[in-house]
């Protein structure tokens, strides 16, 4: 199977869906880039992380629509376009910028279907980069999936590898509901096997990335790779099962509970802040549904309740590490 980067997987998903369906458009700041600059410069940016390179050249300005830096107008226009027949994929560049346009996401797009009594659908995707690890600090590095997952009407997707990135993005574009598609910026260069042909991965179906007997580790986004590494390292002494939910809304609790009932030990690892987050959500659901299966109290590993710091040493402390995942697993085994 061909090996591609996470960035290439995103690009391929968009390209193939745009080829398949002429109602799919892209809209955002510098997704082409170069308008108003030197001759021949248009399309030279292809989005800030380069994930959209070549799409302007293939599909032109009517489908790869560069906008002013106006996030409310971008996302609101995407919602209006989705209500009237297009399938827009809006880009927020850094997802942190949702702060200036959240109204368009959670008061508008997410609520239309319910407020209008089911008489519409809002097939739109909002893409953006999330996550810490690049020293870009508090306003460019947040883990925002818990905030979005709190909103009824939104679906929230957090791919952890190139294969999932392509399949989940294709599903997001074909989906009839508004989807927040979160791309971890540290993963863009990550490589993995990605089939050339289009395929989709259903939402709400977790992926067991490592099978095991002793401990269940539920990990989100970039943490899935960390958890896999630790599981591989410990293989001879502790059998670790790693579950990647892939979407935080809907959240596949069924598979998680099934695994915990098998292992009896649970660790949840998330890069997001701890209050009202995915760790709490997973642990509370396990406690309600299956507390008797737990041999020991569950462990939770997340960022602290602070903004993302800029200094590299502090940022390293902020993000859950492989070492801390290993310590937490060992603690579960000792208890």
């Amino acid at each position: 199977m061909p090996v591609k980067s996470f960035r290439e997987a995103i690009n391929e998903a968009l390209r193939q869906e745009m080829e398949r369906d002429s109602n799919v458009i892209l809209i955002g700041e510098d997704i082409a880039g170069g308008h108003g600059g030197i001759e021949g410069g248009i399309g030279s940016t292809g989005s800030m992380f380069g994930a959209l390179k070549g799409l302007y050249d293939q599909f032109g300005a009517s489908r790869v629509i560069d906008t002013p830096i106006s996030e409310s107008a971008i996302v609101g226009a995407a919602a209006g376009a989705a209500l009237t027949g297009l399938r827009p994929v809006a880009e927020l560049m850094f997802m942190d910028f949702f702060g200036v346009c959240f109204d368009q996401i959670y008061n508008q797009a997410a609520k239309f279907r319910y407020m209008f009594g089911g008489n519409c659908s809002v097939p739109m995707v909002v893409r953006g980069a999330v996550g810490a690890g690049y020293g870009s600090a508090a306003q460019h590095a947040q883990a925002l999936w818990p905030i979005f997952s709190h909103v009824p009407g939104l679906k929230v997707v957090l791919p952890s590898n190139p294969y999932d990135a392509k399949g989940l993005l294709i599903q997001a574009i074909r989906d009839d509901d508004p989807v927040m598609f979160l791309e971890h910026k540290v993963l863009y260069n990550e490589k993995g096997e990605v089939p050339d042909e289009p395929y989709s991965i259903p939402f709400g179906e977790a992926n067991v990335t490592r099978s095991g007997e002793d401990v269940t580790v539920v990990a989100f986004g970039r943490m899935v790779g960390f958890a896999n590494d630790v599981a591989d390292k410990l293989r001879q002494e502790i059998s670790v099962e790693v579950i990647d939910p892939r979407t935080t809304s809907p959240l596949d609790m069924e598979m998680i509970i099934e695994s915990v009932e098998h292992t009896g030990r649970l660790l949840v690892v998330d890069e997001a802040n701890p209050l009202c987050g995915m760790c709490s959500e997973v642990i509370s659901n396990v406690a309600i549904e299956s507390i008797g299966a737990l041999k020991v109290a569950p462990e939770k590993l997340s960022a602290p309740h602070t903004p993302v710091p800029a200094a590299p040493n502090l940022e390293e402390l902020y993000i859950p590490s492989r070492d801390r995942i290993e310590s937490s697993i060992r603690k579960l085994m000792v208890s």
Partner: peptide, 28 residues
């Protein structure tokens, strides 16, 4: 709202209509 009539909704957020109407215009 009645989307089938092109009525994209009364909107309880002041200023909510403008970007949505831009979106419908973008579709057109």
């Amino acid at each position: 709202a009645d989307v089938s009539k092109g009525m994209l909704g009364a909107n309880a957020i002041v200023g909510g209509s403008a970007p949505l109407a831009c979106g419908a215009a973008l579709t057109a």
